[in-house]
Write a protein that binds this DNA or RNA. Structure first.
Length: 765
DNA sequence: TTGCACGAATTTTTT
DNA sequence: ATTCGTGCAA
């Protein structure tokens, strides 16, 4: 008799993780160890063991992870998968709060304020209190608030600690008041309010505990204090069936509140927990794993585990060194070109950097060499201005007490309602103690220029609400765009940018009407529940989705492109060939002057994450100098982490450059670096260097070029450089002066005829 | 109310 | 360098 499909092909620890359904379970899943596989199989196994799908609750951090898991579970068990609740922390909490937030004095149609709304509100409060934003920047207040909320603290606790500026706390209190007044919650509130309700109303908690009996938490190392509390409450403590999956070595979100001690202390917090380590890696070659592990093993706060693979040693890691950031990028690009010539596909290659700013030189050279590439993590769809403006309108329509939506779009497009008008409106609101929208309605009757503006605004919103009765939310977007004049405003601009914005609005409208998220429409006993189909409810659901999804990252995965991204964004992904670039002290690790050991450990984990993305080939690059904020050039030594990598794993030894130094100065520089790193020179990682006189467009080892200023620069006899063909000499020039045709002789007597205007040429000096 | 000019800031990112 | 936000004059 063959064993069930969902148990087949698992290695022993994987199988143990899948088969352990009861009690607390910690699955330590190293990079590439088949985590998702275990999670999905585990769900299948539960069903096989008679667990009802509606009793299973799997929480993730990102929508992407949630939908991936849903998909894979569906592949395994088919339609029943729809009844398993797989969702992000935040959307599950929204779902819970839509019914249970009444216990906190909210109504079910509360809105969610995102970062932007949050900042606007804070700035407003600062203004109201006459706080100089230079003395206390609103950002610092948000930081304080978020940090505290991540830890489930309230203003009173912070005040009692006495380490926070009282004025900041005052702002926070006012913020909470305003939020409540606007029937709004921020992202942190979503989690914290569930905890609050559950703590204050045990019967509500029990309702959910009865329904959700099998819990799974993905990326447990990234949970913050309040998420931990949430899970702990729901699981009902040590007797609950709680499986958490994570990798402490991949905890890289401390800056947004992730608390690595949650995973490190799991066994303490849930006594009797079973721990399973998934250490077999199915992704990378042994050398890649070794390199990644030697770095991360230096951390003192981690759970010991050793990844291994059956993939074999693989090739050694290679090191690419450039004189400056551009030449580093150029050399990496050349390397990539040779890979492409060898027949590797562009989509097999990724470039990973520590900070987004490092992408620029790569974009430049890729453009010039025509290497197709995608930048991951450019501005998110829902963060674009036009999209947010439309959402502002929708929010106001969905929730008349929403203030942020109103203030955002009140004067967009222009209705002659500027600061002055807003001030009057606020004053009026305060007098009458009504919602801002109600105040606007009242102002509308007052005549005058502002009165007219308010009248047209209020009428627009009212008509919108009316329109929604028998139209879809997507149609409402179009309605608002048209009736508000927003559409006309963009059309009048007649620029590419404006046209792009128009497209985005159209895309939004379509997106709104597309798939209604397949929420498990079941009550706590697992019985189907009819979704509220009122137009307002649909709009509400859409807004939640729009706010809670960084979505539409639209990774153009049509393939054929080299991927560029940050370490953080690379987590969970894999590529046959990976370039981890910018591995200099001061760049990676990226540390402030007053850094702590914890921060260094986090940087090590980032290295670990970045390295373990590579399947077959890992290339590291760095530069000898870097430009800081466009001002001044600094020398930089190799990243301290390169010194941790055993020399035999890295081509040319340790973090030092390979042979063939770029010049005698560079030679001395390399010797100096060797000296410094040997003598613990980690501290003085950079020191200023004078700025070179001319600013070349492009410096390579043997070649200095400048950009073509005018076509007259390109005369017969001029030495030029071409991205594809290399260096050459112009032998002939024909055609008219405005569009000359050049015959260029490249090396090995290869002659090419190029149009000067279109070929990307540079002049060799 | 709007448009321009100047000054300041500038890891990492999800929801 | 580049972007973003604020302050001031038209």
């Amino acid at each position: 008799m063959s064993e069930p499909l969902h148990l087949q092909g698992l290695n022993p620890p994987q199988r143990q993780a899948v088969e352990t359904l009861r009690g607390p379970l910690l699955i330590l899943a190293g990079a590439g160890s088949g985590k998702t596989r275990v999670l999905t199989r585990r769900i299948a196994h539960m069903l096989d063991q008679g667990v009802y799908p509606s009793q299973i609750f799997a929480v993730t951090f990102t929508n992407k992870a949630a939908s991936e898991m849903k998909e894979r579970v569906a592949e395994l068990i088919g339609d029943k998968a729809r009844r398993v609740w797989v969702s992000t922390f935040h959307s599950s909490c929204v779902r819970i709060l839509r019914t249970d937030a009444v216990h906190l004095g909210y109504t079910g149609n509360f809105v969610i304020y995102d970062d932007d709304d949050q900042m606007r509100l804070l700035k407003q409060i600062g203004k109201d209190l006459n706080i100089d934003p230079k003395r206390i920047p609103p950002k610092s207040i948000r930081r304080m608030m978020d940090d505290a909320k991540n830890k489930l603290q309230d203003p009173d606790q912070l005040e009692a600690e006495g380490r926070t500026e009282p004025l900041k706390i005052k702002v926070w209190r006012l913020y909470e008041q305003r939020m409540k007044g606007a029937n709004a919650m921020d992202f942190n509130d979503l989690i914290n309010n569930v905890v609050k309700v559950w703590r204050a109303h045990p019967e509500v908690l029990q309702k959910w505990q009865r329904r959700l009996r099998y819990l799974m938490v993905d990326e447990y190392q990234d949970t913050n204090r309040s998420q931990y509390e949430l899970i702990k409450l729901l699981s009902g403590g040590p007797s609950g069936n709680l499986a958490v999956v994570g990798d402490d070595d991949q905890s890289i979100y401390a800056f947004r509140g992730a608390d690595i001690t949650n995973i490190l202390n799991f066994e303490k917090d849930f006594p009797g927990a079973m721990v399973v380590k998934l250490e077999q890696n199915y992704r990378s070659t042994s050398r890649i794993l070794q390199a990644a592990m030697t770095v991360v093993k230096r951390n003192s706060h981690r759970k010991e585990k050793t990844l291994w693979t059956e993939k074999g040693d693989g090739s050694v890691l290679r090191m690419i060194v450039g004189r400056d950031e551009q030449s580093e990028a150029d050399r990496v690009a050349q390397d990539i070109q040779s890979k492409l010539r060898e027949g590797r596909k562009a989509e097999e290659i990724a470039i990973i950097y520590r900070t987004n700013a490092r992408s620029r030189p790569f974009e430049q050279i890729f453009q010039r060499l025509r290497i197709p590439h995608v930048l991951v993590g450019a501005r998110k769809f829902y963060q674009r201005r036009e999209v947010r403006d439309m959402l502002g309108y929708l929010k106001l329509i969905a929730n008349p007490s929403d203030e942020m939506g109103l203030l955002r779009v009140l004067n967009i497009p222009r209705r002659g309602l500027g600061d002055k008008a807003v001030q009057t409106l606020r004053a009026h609101q305060k007098n009458q103690e009504v919602t801002l929208f109600r105040a606007a309605q009242e102002m509308a009757g007052m005549g005058g220029r502002a009165g007219k503006g308010f009248a047209s605004f209020v009428s627009l919103i009212d008509r919108g609400r009316e329109y929604l009765r028998d139209h879809t939310a997507g149609e409402l977007v179009v309605f608002i765009a048209n009736e508000s004049g927003y559409w006309g405003m963009l059309e009048a601009e007649d620029t590419d940018e404006a046209r792009g914005r128009l497209m985005n609005i159209r895309a939004l409208a379509e997106d709104v009407d597309q798939e209604e998220e397949t929420l498990p429409d079941i009550d706590e006993d697992g019985n189907p529940v009819a979704l509220d189909e009122s137009p307002l409810a649909r709009l509400q659901r859409f807004l939640d989705r729009a706010t809670l999804s960084g979505q539409a990252e639209e990774l153009p995965d049509d393939g054929g492109q080299v991927t560029l991204m940050t370490c953080h964004l690379s987590k969970g992904l894999e590529y046959p060939i990976v370039y981890v670039v910018g591995m200099n002290e001061g760049g990676f690790p990226l540390l402030r002057d007053d850094f702590t050991e914890e921060q260094v450990e986090e940087e090590r984990r980032l290295v670990y994450v970045a390295f373990t993305r590579a399947m077959d080939e890992l290339v590291i690059s760095r530069s000898l100098t870097r430009i800081q904020y466009g001002r001044g050039i600094e020398r930089c030594s190799p990243s301290r982490f390169l010194g941790d990598i055993p020399p035999e794993l890295l081509q040319g030894g340790t973090g030092r450059a390979r042979k063939r130094p770029v010049s005698s100065t560079a030679d001395r520089e390399l010797a100096m670096q060797a000296f410094l790193s040997k003598h613990g020179g980690g501290a003085g990682h950079t020191r200023p260097l004078q700025r070179p006189a001319p600013k070349p467009a492009h410096v390579d080892e043997l070649r200095v070029t400048r950009k073509v200023e005018s076509l007259e620069d390109l005369q017969v006899g001029t030495r030029i450089f071409h991205g594809d063909y290399g260096e050459g000499v112009i032998r002939n020039r024909t055609g008219d002066a405005k569009n000359p045709k050049l015959t260029v002789e490249f090396s090995q007597h290869k002659r090419k005829t190029l149009f000067a205007r279109y070929a990307r040429l540079e002049i060799v000096q």
